[in-house]
Simulated assay, not measured.
Amino acid sequence: MRDTRRARLILGLLLAVALVLITIDHRQRDDSLFEPARSAAASLFGVAERAGTDVAKPVGDFIDTFASAPESKRRLALLRAENARLRQELTAHSLDRHRSAELTRMLGLSGLGGYRVVAAQVIARRGVPGFEDAVEIDAGTGDGIRSEMTVLNGDGLVGRVVHTSPATSTVVLLTDPASSAGARLEGNSQVGVVTGLGPVAGGRLIRFRLLDAAAPLTAGRRIVSFGSQHGMPYAPGLPVGTIQHVEATPGELTRVAYAKPFVDFTALDVVGVVVRAPQRDPRDAMLPPPPPVASKARAATPPATTPTAPPSSSPPTASPTPSTTVRDQGGERPRAARERGSGTSRQPVRARRARMPQRPAQARPAGPRQQPAGTRERPEARKHDQAGERT
């Protein structure tokens, strides 16, 4: 539009009209003549504003996302690092609790037997020339550990030290085929030798060879370490395992059995190295209490009841009387046989004897009766004498 006198005049008139309308609308307020127009304009412009907002908002959000992307990435990286740190701390706390429990059990077992031990942790599995199953621990000569010392954990015998360094030591496990240890049956002095079976058995079984072929050997018996001089390489009294089955070896001088070790050799963590063995053999004091399987089975089994005979309607029969011996003319025979032969009961016989006439008692000299020489006693007199003695 050109800046002319006419254009300026029209603009001035429009401004004047606007000022007049604003003044009139302000003075009348609610009764203003422009209220319907204002409402219509508000409705129209409201719809236009909403439509513009719906169109412009996604575009604005998209632009804001690009603008704030570096900050979001930085915050996401911080959250991921915090999450990893918390997860690591949780795992470390769990391992610490597990190791604390293992250490407590190991110290409790060694204290029960009177052993002086140095605690260590298994840090690696390694191979040693001449041995197939060995581990590395984080304790060495700086901690007072020497070769040929016994290694245990909270369950029992683990193995022995074969090599040492200032900070680490190598332990050959009891499951190694080249490892042998003296062992003894629980509760007696029958000794034998325990050897490992290597990776074939996976640490689940060991071989126990009992030196006495005549000694009883059954499944379920437990074995402990027999010990060596000065407790090296094996200390006495350490739990070794439980016999699972016995191998038939007819004609051999020894008996062979396979035992399950108390120690889980696939999950070794905290161990203890015996630096001083006890002065006295703890014998079977370190064995865990046997599982109460038998007592539970006995408790679960109901007591056996004796079946009672059904009542009988027949009268009870008299028990046979013990046969007594009486003297008769023909010699001695049981009284019951006499009663059966005569067909009479004992009571009638007694009554009949009571009715028999009694002979008057005659004074007889003490001692056996003397008969004149050349005389013979009559049978009738003997019978009467015997009848009088019976009555």
Rank of each mutant, 00 (worst) to 15 (best):
R2M: 10
R2F: 06
T4G: 09
R5N: 12
I24K: 06
R27L: 15
S32W: 05
L33Q: 08
L33C: 05
A40T: 10
A42M: 12
P58Q: 05
V59H: 13
G60V: 12
E71V: 11
S72T: 14
L76M: 14
E82Y: 07
R85M: 08
R85I: 11
T91S: 15
A92I: 10
A92G: 07
H93N: 14
H93Q: 15
A101Y: 10
M106W: 04
R125W: 06
F131V: 04
D133V: 05
A139T: 00
T141M: 06
G142F: 03
I145T: 04
R146Y: 03
S147P: 06
E148M: 04
T150Y: 06
N153S: 07
V158W: 02
T164I: 04
P166C: 02
T168L: 02
V171K: 01
E186W: 02
G192N: 01
G196K: 02
L197G: 10
R204C: 01
R207G: 03
F208G: 01
L210H: 01
P216R: 09
G220Y: 04
R222M: 04
I223W: 03
F226A: 14
Q229K: 14
A235L: 01
V240A: 03
V246T: 04
T249C: 06
T254Y: 09
T254H: 06
R255V: 07
L268M: 05
D269T: 13
D269H: 07
V271R: 02
V274I: 10
R280K: 14
R283K: 13
R283Q: 09
K296N: 13
P303H: 11
T306Q: 12
P310K: 01
S312F: 04
S312R: 13
S314P: 03
T317S: 12
T321V: 15
G330R: 13
R338E: 08
E339S: 12
G343Y: 00
R353A: 14
A354R: 05
A361F: 06
Q362K: 10
G367C: 02
Q370R: 14
A373S: 10
H384I: 15
H384A: 15
